[in-house]
Amino acid sequence: MDYEIIIISNRPHLSQEAQACLEGLNSRIFDGTNYPSFSKIVNDAIASSLYEQIIICNDKARPTHAAVEKILTMLKAGWGMVGLYRFGFFGFKKDLIRKIGFFDEGFIGGGYEDNDFIWRLKEANISFYESEEIDYIYLPTSWNYEKSNFSRNHFFEKWKEEGHVITRQLPEKKYQYGIGLFQNSRFTEFNQSILLPYNFRLKDMIMKTDL
């Protein structure tokens, strides 16, 4: 077994319900109480893992065993990231993080970190499978990005979109988490991605850098 499912939550009472869906599988709860951002929780969860394949599970996701098997099968086939409820239930190899970096912790309060990571997958030409095919409980967000423009401002300082061109304006920050060396995983290309409708346009976008 070279995977684990990490249920991240800043509302631990909800995480137990998510874990019940995964009974018999290798899962654990990561308490994100008082964390400043979704990105920081995910990064610390990755750094704490002893496994090469990681599935991150939001406390509102209600996945099945079959969903876990689908993610692991797709990762073995070379997909870079597989999200069966967007970034509420998604899997990847640590080699993806070694290749393109950790989640950007500049998105304080939550929001836009998923957009940022998808654009980075496009930039690195690595495939992304994105769907909403598992059950997901709709509850108010536990983050405060609706009350602050901090994450939004950071996103548009980092990226500029004009027509069919997306330009990087800020470099990726290097985080010293120490997850070992790249193990030469080979990923399928971004043009093979399966995306939700609002991200379809990314396949035709041109990525540039202005650094």
Rank of each mutant, 00 (worst) to 15 (best):
R86M: 04
P63Y: 01
D135R: 01
D95I: 04
W119T: 03
V68P: 02
Y198G: 01
R152D: 01
R98G: 12
F92G: 02
H154Q: 11
D116E: 14
F89L: 00
R86C: 03
N144R: 15
N184H: 12
Y175F: 14
E105P: 00
K94I: 01
E113Y: 03
E172V: 15
T73W: 02
I126P: 03
F182L: 15
E146R: 10
P63M: 10
N153Y: 12
N191T: 13
Q176G: 11
N191V: 11
E113F: 06
S185I: 05
G163E: 06
W143G: 08
R201T: 09
E157I: 05
T167E: 11
L170A: 07
K94M: 04
S131A: 06
P140C: 03
D95A: 05
E162S: 14
F190L: 01
H164K: 15
I166C: 02
P171I: 10
D204Q: 12
D204K: 13
Q176W: 06
N199V: 00
F155K: 02
A77R: 14
M74H: 03
H164R: 15
K158P: 04
G109Q: 04
K99H: 07
G111Y: 07
W79R: 05
Y198K: 15
F103V: 04
K76M: 04
D114E: 13
R186Y: 14
K158G: 01
E161G: 14
R86N: 03
S127Q: 05
Y85E: 01
D95H: 02
I108F: 13
F155C: 05
N191A: 12
K174L: 13
R152A: 12
K158S: 15
F187M: 07
L139V: 08
